[in-house]
Design a binder for these strands. Structure first.
Lengths: 192, 192
DNA sequence: AGTGGTGGCTAACAGCGTTAGCTAAGGAGT
DNA sequence: ACTCCTTAGCTAACGCTGTTAGCCACCACT
């Protein structure tokens, strides 16, 4: 019963975990340009080189942040699809699952905009796959498949959702845009 | 007759134009991390500080690149919609203009993937609106409105297209994805 | 009583964007 | 022809970034 559970994240030492946590707050509070080894260390009360006793380099720190971002997003999406809902019991699913698409999109938007800097970090540029927990990426993408029942529609829906979110976060839409309506149009279109 | 013409880009001195041109090639050939004031200067046979005689700073250089990217993309999109086609003669347009959506998406994808680094630069992060030619952004976005006839569908379609392109460029889809099919699904969905 | 690992530290390096200040070349004006 | 100003290059340097080397104090274990 229920959705597949997340693959366990690559384990970190308690101190490393604490560093990643602080980095998470630093990123969300002060933006990506503030996520600097020196200011991160300062917020921890130590000097920058000491960070390298716990993490190999900055990309490793970012990978850890990305893992946490993907995990949080996916958990949010699975919850939105319904907590105890069966994943594979309806084989190809007869489409027309309008409600699921709406709920999925609402959850995606809410989670992304609640931590925009983390979302941007998770999705900007090439994914450091080699540094990520195997299976995490697939597991985090699966809700889109469960909501559409078709891999192509799932990818298309994900693209729409990501495009909307990143353009909204980056302020690329005209300032007076009624984005709620645009989201609703997209949901309708993909529910048909 | 025909589409509205592009607003004229902010004029640059011939030498600045040459620098921007070189930067364009450097970016596309060697990626964004190679677009450095020092290596750009080196490719021009001068030293980095000399660049500041022609451009105020690096964001100004990037803004000039973005202007060129937006211009090229928009011209490509207008061409795909049909060269002499009237823009405003069909008022709200009765939807169901399937062919236009397909052509628009094909052109968008082709242009973006033909210069992926420029596309990324044009769309990553917040747009430096203050540095851009006024009207350019609206003009470049109008083809989506012309293809859908509705501002909300236009924004949704743009989001889908941008999401697809940026995820494709960044290699975020599983490596064996049949993206042609996903694009086609999206086009169908937005043509209905 | 050592002894090794852990987790701090300072000093330093290379590369980044950028500024200050100097200088050689070229054109304009008297 | 001589001066003068602008143009467009230069070197040196600053503050920032990530990162490495090497040193030292502490703490657990034998």
């Amino acid at each position: 019963m229920g959705w597949p559970s997340a693959p366990p994240l690559s384990p970190l030492t308690p101190r490393a975990e604490q560093i990643v946590d602080t980095a998470l707050h630093l990123l969300e509070d002060s933006g990506p340009e503030a996520l600097t080894m020196r200011t991160l260390a300062e917020r921890l009360g130590i000097r920058a080189p000491s960070l390298y006793k716990h993490l190999p380099d900055k990309p490793a720190l970012e990978a850890a942040l990305i893992e946490r971002g993907l995990l949080a997003m996916a958990e949010h999406l699975y919850a939105a699809l319904g907590d105890g809902e069966p994943p594979e019991t309806q084989p190809p699913r007869p489409l027309r699952e309008g409600g699921a698409v709406h709920r999925l999109l609402r959850a995606y938007r809410a989670q992304a905009t609640s931590r925009p800097n983390l979302y941007r970090l998770c999705t900007a540029g090439e994914l450091p796959r080699a540094r990520l927990t195997p299976g995490l990426e697939d597991w985090a993408g699966a809700p889109f498949y469960h909501a559409t029942g078709d891999p192509y529609r799932a990818q298309a829906l994900w693209s729409f959702a990501h495009g909307m979110v990143i353009l909204e976060i980056d302020g690329r839409f005209p300032p007076d845009s009624a984005l709620d309506i645009t989201w609703a149009r997209g949901a309708e279109v993909f529910s048909g």
